[in-house]
Each structure stands twice: as structure tokens, then as C-alpha cells.
Amino acid sequence: MLTRICTAVVLIVAVLAWLFKADYAIYAMGCLFMYAVGAYEMGPLLGYKSRIPFILISCICAVLSFIAVGNPGNFINTGIPSVAQYITVTGMIVWIGCLPLLIKYPHNTAWHNSIVLNTIIGILLLVPFLMGLLILRASEYATNNLSGSFLVLSVMALVWCADSGAYFTGYFLGKHKMLPNVSPKKTVEGLIGGLVTALIGMYIFMQLGWFGQYADNKFALTCACIAAIIFSVIGDLVESMLKRIVGIKDSGKIFPGHGGMLDRIDSQLAAIPVFLTFIWLVSGELR
């Protein structure tokens, strides 16, 4: 328990420093670090015998996405190109597509035998997340270089609020299992409690001004937050399903007491691109 608490404290300090002390270039390097470690850990979950092939494929895909959008460092000066938006939106494909896989588990896992399909799924889990992080941090950077920091923190904190609310609501009130074959401890009551807690968090973040220009359209922001919260649960469930299929307890051991990188960011993999996708779709900003 002490190890877990100490690791959590170090992680919180590191994330806050990464968000609020690092300039955009250092922030982007942190994003790439999360992406690379996540890819390193994801290989075995997708059926790769070695971790190397998938991390190489992931790096190639990241480079190709950067070539497609131009230098992501220019996001803070020239704005977000439409191709970057569409790369982020592709994340919705895998999350929606994973819903029937979750529902049918464990009765149908034949799809996991296809390394090509698994690779596509893995890339669509990671690349839109990476692009979304870079887009969020670049928000209003020219006028306030910390505006994007608060925005990234807000979206991440929504997930943390949802996780905490779901845990305590499920612990005290949980009766109806959601997907017991995938995650035995998750309940419908926990999901509702997590959603309510996160919405309270959203209201607080709005009052604090953390959402910046995204709060100009409150309807679009509310829709995006609700979608991000719901899909963050799906992100957690998808990783749980993949670990169960291959018989792995933790994705890695990089964080003592907390498992691997994917164990820490599985919900964020879905929340970040889904949040942006709904913001753009509801507000009509998707060009």
C-alpha cells in the first residue's frame, strides 16, 4: 500500500510539472514517451510474441501522422489543420467497433486470432490519443501558454472523477453487474455514480475557467464531457478484455504498485479523442 501511495504522489507531481512547467516541445516529448511505452506494452495484448514489431509499426504510424499534419509544433502558431482533426476522429471507429466485442466476450474471441486486425485496433487506440493530446495543449497557446494545460488537465480529471465516483458508488450501492465476464467489479450503479461525479467535476472546472474557449459552446462541451466519461469506461473495459484474452494481469511494471502505462492511461486513450470528436461534431467545427 505504501508503495502504491508513494508512486501515486510521484505521478501526480510529474503530471503537473509536465503540464504546467514544460513548454510545448517538452510536453510533446512527454506525449511521445507515453505513446511509445503504451505501444511497447500493447504488443503482447494484441498477440505479438515479441514487443518489438508493434512498437516499430506504432513509431512508423506516428511519423506518418506527423508528416500528414506537418510539424505538430506549428499547432501553437498556425492552428489545427483539418487532417489532424480527422486523425483524432478515427479513434471513434475503434471504440464504437469494440462495443460488440465487449458484449460477445468471452463467447467470441476469434477476431483476436487476426494479427492484422489487432494491429489496426492497436494503432487506432494510440495515434488518435497522441494527436488529441497535442491538439488540446495547443489550445489558445499564443495568448495564454497555460490555457491548454488546464484543458488537458480538465479532460483527464473528468476521467479521474468518474473512476473515483464509480468506485465508491459501486462499493456501497453496486448490485447490477455491467459486464462481469470482462470486469467483475464494475456495476451499473457505479457507472451512474461515476457519471454524476464527473459532471459535478465538469461544472467546477467550467466555473474555474479550465475549459477555456471550449466553454463558449456549453452544449457542445457538455455533450463532449458526457461522451468522454462514458467512453473512458469502454477504454478501461477494452484493456481488461485484451488482458483476459492473453492471460496478462498488468500491462507492465513501469509504475510500482500501479502496473504499466496502459493500466494508467487506458481510459484516457478513449476520453481524449472522443472529447474532441464530440466538441467538433456538435459545434460544427469539423472541417
Rank of each mutant, 00 (worst) to 15 (best):
T3A: 13
C6N: 09
I12V: 15
V15M: 14
V15H: 01
D23K: 08
Y24G: 05
M29C: 15
G30E: 04
C31I: 07
F33D: 00
Y35Q: 07
A36K: 00
G38D: 03
Y40V: 09
E41V: 07
M42G: 05
K49A: 10
R51W: 06
P53C: 10
S58T: 06
C59F: 12
A62V: 12
V69H: 04
N77Q: 13
T78H: 11
T78R: 06
S82D: 15
A84W: 01
Q85T: 08
Q85K: 15
Y86L: 10
I87V: 12
V89N: 01
V94L: 06
P100A: 10
L101P: 03
L102Q: 06
I103A: 11
P106H: 12
H107L: 12
H107F: 15
H107I: 09
H107N: 14
W111L: 09
W111D: 06
L117Y: 10
I120A: 14
L126V: 10
L126Q: 03
M131C: 14
G132K: 02
L134F: 09
R137T: 12
A138L: 07
S139H: 15
Y141M: 11
L146S: 11
S147Y: 00
F150W: 13
L153N: 06
A157M: 12
L158Q: 01
C161V: 10
F168W: 13
F172P: 01
L179W: 04
V182G: 03
K185L: 11
V188E: 09
E189W: 08
E189K: 04
G190T: 07
I192G: 01
G193K: 02
G194W: 03
G194K: 01
L195F: 14
L195E: 00
T197E: 05
A198V: 08
G201Y: 02
G201D: 02
G201P: 06
F205Y: 13
Q207T: 07
G209N: 09
Y214M: 15
T222P: 03
T222E: 01
C223R: 01
A224R: 01
F231R: 01
V233T: 10
V233H: 02
G235A: 10
V238R: 02
L242R: 00
R244C: 03
R244G: 03
G247Y: 05
G247I: 05
I248C: 07
S251K: 08
G252C: 05
G252L: 01
I254S: 07
I254W: 02
H258K: 06
M261N: 04
L262C: 04
R264H: 10
R264T: 10
I265V: 14
Q268L: 15
Q268M: 15
A271E: 03
I272C: 05
I272G: 01
V274R: 02
L276M: 10
L276K: 03
T277N: 12
S283A: 15
E285C: 09
